[in-house]
Design a protein around this nucleic acid. Sequence first.
DNA 1: CTTATATTTGCATCACAGTTGCAAATATAT
DNA 2: ATATATTTGCAACTGTGATGCAAATATAAG
Lengths: 132, 132
Amino acid sequence: MKSILKRKNISETPFRKSVLEIISDSSSAVSISYIENKLGEYNRVTLYRTIKTFLETGIIHSISIAGEDLRYAMCEDTCQQDNHIHNHLHLQCTQCNSVYCVDLPADSFINKSNHLIDSFEVHAKGVCEHCQ
Amino acid sequence: MKSILKRKNISETPFRKSVLEIISDSSSAVSISYIENKLGEYNRVTLYRTIKTFLETGIIHSISIAGEDLRYAMCEDTCQQDNHIHNHLHLQCTQCNSVYCVDLPADSFINKSNHLIDSFEVHAKGVCEHCQ
DNA sequence: CTTATATTTGCATCACAGTTGCAAATATAT
DNA sequence: ATATATTTGCAACTGTGATGCAAATATAAG
């Protein structure tokens, strides 16, 4: 089977493979600095460009939490190049601070306002499975 | 009746009053650059410090959307100094790009995962009332 | 397997957001 | 009206992310 990089039609370089592995090996969403620590030696510019490429090709999506660094997680197959909002829940654990993506069916609240909702994403705080 | 600034126990200065007025006068959440435009002449450092103070005292909260500047909106009375996550929906209009805070009752999805959810916030994309 | 072309990498350098220390100015309390 | 506490403005700094370009590497074609 073709690698993710090949499937997304971008060159398969050692650096890209390392970054992809770090992100997909983690069960929770990771920050740039987490990736930097895992990489050891690396080039800052190349890392930023790699993240940008992964975002643009729909390999990863970013999770934005007020007051914290952006975090990145693998995309589902449903993810589009131009819209990375996932209909799922982003849970940040108040104990370990990890952020998990949790699948969620489109729900009742969607029609509770006067706005027409296309896609949504829930940011939640609580205690994750592992910390309970 | 005491002003918001007095109630929150911080000095009432002309600059703070202007910034507060700009945020509370807007029906949707505003970015720093929006505030800067409205202010005309101002000091960058003072603005950042003002925003920080407002966040810390629970006067405003920030809304973080991946790939976009942070936006700020007035807090509800329920807002705490240390946790600015609101149990409400942040709707970004795909037409006008405005972000609105929409009240939302704690909902069924809260117990659909194995995590213990304390507070949540929904980021949604769609078309706002005004653009329909 | 070799070569030509396209893509990516690393370097130097820049742009910009946000922060800090400190002295002057302003707000609050007495 | 004055003393004290707080805020403001300035200059300078830090860290994140971007850009142009030449060298290195990956892919496609024979």
